[in-house]
Computed example of a mutant assay.
Amino acid sequence: MAHQDTELVNWSEFSRTRGELGAAFPRILGYFREDGVKSIIAVEEAFRARSAADLIRPAHTLKGESAQFGAYRLSVMAEEIEMVARRCVETRESPDELIEVVVAMRACFSETMALLDRDANPLAARRPGGFGRRVETPVQGFGRAI
């Protein structure tokens, strides 16, 4: 499958979006999380109902939002679901071939959000030693530069 070969997160895209959104970034990332969960639930429900037409909108939404945050693997998976669902609507087929992608999408979303949250957390960039801990420095001796 093509999505397995796609990078989980494109950090350049993530950084670009973070820079463009500035102080609004944490709030918008939260919206992405909420919308992503809703989209995944909608995709899973539509798949269970074998409704190709009902797969299209949540997959399309997830595709675009994921790409915006650099979540490329998730975006590729959503795009595959959307494209196959569109074809199935046109040919009046069941979207059964999507089972592996639909099942893998929730785990991919969770893994992606864990990485995005870790990188977006302002506390993640801590100084060595952390708050309240003394950082051990090597003994330099008087007048010596390291």
Score class of each variant (00 low, 15 high):
residue 2 A to K: 07
residue 6 T to G: 00
residue 7 E to P: 06
residue 15 S to A: 12
residue 20 E to S: 10
residue 23 A to D: 14
residue 26 P to T: 07
residue 28 I to R: 02
residue 30 G to I: 10
residue 30 G to D: 10
residue 32 F to T: 07
residue 34 E to W: 01
residue 35 D to E: 14
residue 39 S to D: 11
residue 41 I to Y: 10
residue 41 I to H: 15
residue 42 A to H: 08
residue 44 E to N: 02
residue 46 A to Y: 07
residue 47 F to W: 13
residue 49 A to W: 06
residue 49 A to H: 11
residue 56 I to A: 10
residue 56 I to H: 03
residue 59 A to T: 05
residue 59 A to G: 15
residue 60 H to V: 12
residue 61 T to Y: 10
residue 61 T to Q: 11
residue 62 L to T: 10
residue 62 L to S: 03
residue 67 A to T: 05
residue 69 F to M: 04
residue 73 R to N: 02
residue 75 S to P: 06
residue 77 M to D: 03
residue 80 E to C: 05
residue 81 I to W: 07
residue 85 A to D: 04
residue 85 A to E: 03
residue 87 R to G: 09
residue 89 V to W: 02
residue 93 E to Q: 15
residue 94 S to G: 02
residue 95 P to Q: 04
residue 95 P to K: 03
residue 97 E to L: 02
residue 100 E to N: 04
residue 100 E to L: 04
residue 101 V to Q: 00
residue 102 V to S: 01
residue 105 M to T: 03
residue 108 C to G: 01
residue 109 F to C: 05
residue 110 S to C: 08
residue 111 E to T: 04
residue 115 L to K: 12
residue 115 L to A: 08
residue 118 R to H: 14
residue 119 D to V: 10
residue 119 D to A: 14
residue 127 R to D: 12
residue 130 G to V: 07
residue 130 G to E: 13
residue 131 F to R: 14
residue 133 R to D: 11
residue 135 V to Y: 11
residue 136 E to W: 12
residue 136 E to S: 13
residue 140 Q to R: 14
residue 140 Q to K: 13
residue 144 R to G: 02
residue 146 I to A: 15
